[in-house]
Each structure stands twice: as C-alpha cells, then as structure tokens.
Amino acid sequence: MRILRLALRRLAASLPTLLLILAGMFLLLQLAPGDTVDALMAQMGGGDAALAEDLRRFYGLDVGIAAQLWNYLTRLATLDLGFSAIYGKPVATVILERLPPTILLMVSALSFAFFFGLLLGVLAARRVNRWPDTLISTLGLLFYATPSFWFGLMAIVLFSVYLQWLPAGGFYDITMGYTGLAAVLDIARHLVLPTLTLGLIFLAIYLRIMRASMLEVLSLDFVRTARAKGLTETRVVARHVLRNAMLPMVTLIGLQAGTMLGGSVVVESVFALPGLGRLAYESVVQRDLNTLLGIVFVSALLVIAINFVVDILYARLDPRISAES
C-alpha cells in the first residue's frame, strides 16, 4: 500500500515533465521541413496538388500548429494516443505490437551485460594489475569502442552467412509456423546475435564500473574487519563487498534502461527486428507525429517505472537510503 502511494506520488510529480517533453517534441518536429503528406508523396513517387490538399485534410493537417497541438493534448487527456498516419491503426495498437520484441531484447541484453559485467568486474578487481585484469579491461575497451552496427554485421557474416548457425535477422521464422516450445526456441535463436551485439557495449561499461566500485569497497574498514574475523576471501567478497559495490551498477541500470528503449534503432535495423526504436525512426522520417509522440509517452512512462523500481532496490541494498526520503 505504501509502495503504491509512493508510486502514484512519483507519477504525479513526473506529469509536468511528461507534458513538457511531449509539447517540446511536437514543436521540434515542426521545425523539420515537410509533413507526413510530403513523406507519403515521396513514397508514392508523386501526385498532383489537389491530391496533396485532399490528403492533408485526411490527416488533419489543414488546421494551424497550435490547434493541432491542442487537439493532441486534449485527446491525450482521455488517454487516446490518436491514429497513426503510416500504419492506419490506433497508435496504442501499433506500439503494443512493437513492445514485446523491444522489451525482450532490452531485458535479455541488460541481463547479459549486468551478469557478465558483474562477473568480469569482480574477477578483474580481485586480480588487479595482473594479467587477468589487463585482459578483461582491454577486451572491455575493445567492445566499448566498436560501433554496434559493425559488430552486428560482422556477427551476421560469421554466424549466419559462413557458419549458418544462427538466422541473419527477423524475430521468428515465418516460413516454418512453429508453435509452443519450438516457437520459443525459435525466437531465442533469433535473439542471440542482437542480444550479444547490444549487450557487449553495455557489458564494457558495467565491468569497468564494477571493477572500480569493488576496488573502492575492498579498501574500506569493514572489509578489513571481516578479514580479521578470519573469513575466507571468497566469503568476504560474496557477503560483504559485492552487496556494497552493487549500488552504482543499479543506478546505471536505471539510467540505461531508458537509453536502450530508444537506442536500439541500429541493432533493430541491422537484425530486422520489429522494435520501438525502428518505429520511432520511421515515424520521424515519415513525419508521423501521433506515433512519435505516442512512443515518447510510453517510453517516458517506462523510464519512470524503472527508476521507481531502482529506488526501491536502493533501499533494499543499503538500508541507510530510504525510498521515501
């Protein structure tokens, strides 16, 4: 109950920000030359001016910008996200269709990066300045410096074109029509390469943060006390150091979940995944305001939710921090 009250209060506090973001986005897109009818004309390969006027009326673009923004916000007040110009469907439906692949990719990439980042960070910290540390740090730097599209394409060339182990793209195999467990495995197979591509960059960040944080905590007094008690090194690290070194990692996850939602455009394009990033990109190119604002709205809600969970986790990890203060 307390948590629910807290959640509602957090949401209410974010409302002005949300409104500001939406209005800002709307106005920003007005600065881009051309509207959705121009984009449609480009797709059609031309048409006469009467047709263009007709289409502008159809898409509700024949009224002024202020009126358009007002129409949008009043509709949003009733939780109506409007109609997508490119898809000819309600924006809510379009986004709902795209959410599962996005969240699946985000969760798997983040878990991969978090788990291995943690593991490698701990390993590097325990062997600091010796060869395992150097190896891990160099690898991390390499992953971090590699552009994700290149990494993705090279992975496709190696694993799909030459070795033929994994599919080159798509979310699942449409020609086979799998059901049940086979379908789940099929989706998993399709997600291996995108997850690795997206995860490796984040892995590099996590492992560096984890390494630094471990080194700092290892030098604190309570660790010396634990060692003086005669605990084994493994026990010291697992029970005392790790928990305290986790705080920056949790902060980072909260921040990056937001980036990953919108930031996977490249990976989604390279692997032809139907995610939110590609949808957002397409809506910008096609000047589909409703869809773009809808995505911003949903992403903002997700980020607020994730940060809320992160705050609660803080309190669990370190009782000195209270979520309510």
Binding site: A32, P33, G34, D35, D38, A39, A42, V285
Partner: peptide, 10 residues
C-alpha cells in the same frame, strides 16, 4: 542533405 519529406518540401 535532407530526408524525403524535407527534400520535397524545400
């Protein structure tokens, strides 16, 4: 350089 909508409009 513009995108499609921007090019046609300009």
């Amino acid at each position: 350089r513009n995108d499609a909508a921007g090019f046609l409009r300009s």
